[in-house]
Every structure is written in structure tokens, then in C-alpha cells.
């Protein structure tokens, strides 16, 4: 067992974990932060994306001990009280989800994407950067719209399915 200290959503959390404990297990099972999901458990689907020191990472492919000393932000940590984060609000506005399982990872990936690209984001970049996030419901169109809207970027001129 190893003692870890991880700042999660701004609060310093301490715990004693087996070295093999994945970061996502620490978040969900030790801290009860079940907003971060496990979809594929093989780094493919992105349901487990959180931010490690401000950058999107897959928490199913990282050990909790690796994150010790770092700051982690999860889906629970981005709203301001009752006020949704702009990306969360955009997903609601544009109906960027159906079953919702992939949504926490989609939103954390989207926030990271907007942090890096800002309003220069375009549809092609959003689609390319969603490479590591799988949604089996929406067909992605509304997710792309939501991300572009939250980034303050131009919406696609025409969307094939419409």
C-alpha cells in the first residue's frame, strides 16, 4: 500500500492505495466520485477522461500512485455551484447526449480541446480530436455542435444528417 495525496477538484485528498489501483478506481471507489465512467477499460472509449494538471488523460490507463502530487479535475469539479460549466450548458442546449454514458468524458475532452484551440476550433478539428471518445447514441453531430458553440466558434454550414 502506498499513501497518495491528490488534489481533486481543488480539495486535497489523501488515501492509501494498492499500487495497482487505477486512477479511475481511486476516484470512483475511494472518493465516491462516480461521474467519471469506465466504458471500455482499454483506453479506447474516453468515458474516463479527467484532467491531470490541466490536461485531458484517460484515468483507466493511469495508476493512482502516478497522480500523487498532482491536481485532478473531474466532471464533478467544473460547474460553479448550481451554474453549469459553459461546455455542460452547451451540451444541454444542443442536445449533445442521449444515454449520457460517454458525456463526462466528452465534456472533459471538450474543455481540454477548447483550452488548447479556443475560438479557432473548426468542425474538422473537433471531429479529429474526438478520436479517443466514443459515443454510440448521438452520431456525434450534436456533440460537435455543442463543442463549437461553447468555443464560440463558427458552426458547420451544413450537417449531412439534417
Amino acid at each position: 500500500m502506498t499513501d497518495v495525496t491528490i488534489t481533486v477538484n481543488g480539495r486535497e485528498m489523501k488515501g492509501s492505495v494498492e499500487n495497482r489501483t487505477l486512477l479511475v478506481q481511486f476516484l470512483r471507489e475511494h472518493l465516491g466520485l462516480t461521474g467519471t465512467h469506465v466504458g471500455c477499460d482499454t483506453s479506447q472509449c474516453g468515458a474516463c477522461v479527467v484532467h491531470l494538471d490541466g490536461k485531458a488523460v484517460k484515468s483507466c490507463t493511469m495508476l493512482a500512485v502516478q497522480a500523487s502530487g498532482s491536481s485532478v479535475t473531474t466532471i464533478e469539479g467544473i460547474a460553479e455551484g448550481q451554474e453549469l460549466h459553459p461546455v455542460q450548458a452547451a451540451f444541454r442546449e444542443h442536445h449533445g447526449l442521449q444515454c449520457g454514458y460517454c458525456t463526462p468524458g466528452m465534456i472533459m475532452t471538450a474543455v481540454d480541446m477548447i483550452n488548447r484551440h479556443g475560438s479557432s476550433l473548426d468542425e474538422e478539428t473537433v471531429r479529429e480530436e474526438l478520436d479517443g471518445n466514443i459515443c454510440r447514441c448521438t452520431g456525434y453531430h450534436n456533440i460537435v455542435k455543442a463543442i463549437l458553440s461553447a468555443a464560440g466558434a463558427a458552426q458547420p454550414q451544413a450537417v449531412a444528417a439534417e
Binding site: 474516453g46 488523460v57 484517460k58 481540454d112 480541446m113 478520436d131 479517443g132
Partner: peptide, 9 residues
């Protein structure tokens, strides 16, 4: 390589 999250690690 990979996707953005993989490229960060």
C-alpha cells in the same frame, strides 16, 4: 499518434 489524451501521457 493515438488521441489527445494519449498524446498528453
Amino acid at each position: 499518434i493515438g488521441d489527445p489524451a494519449v498524446r498528453h501521457m
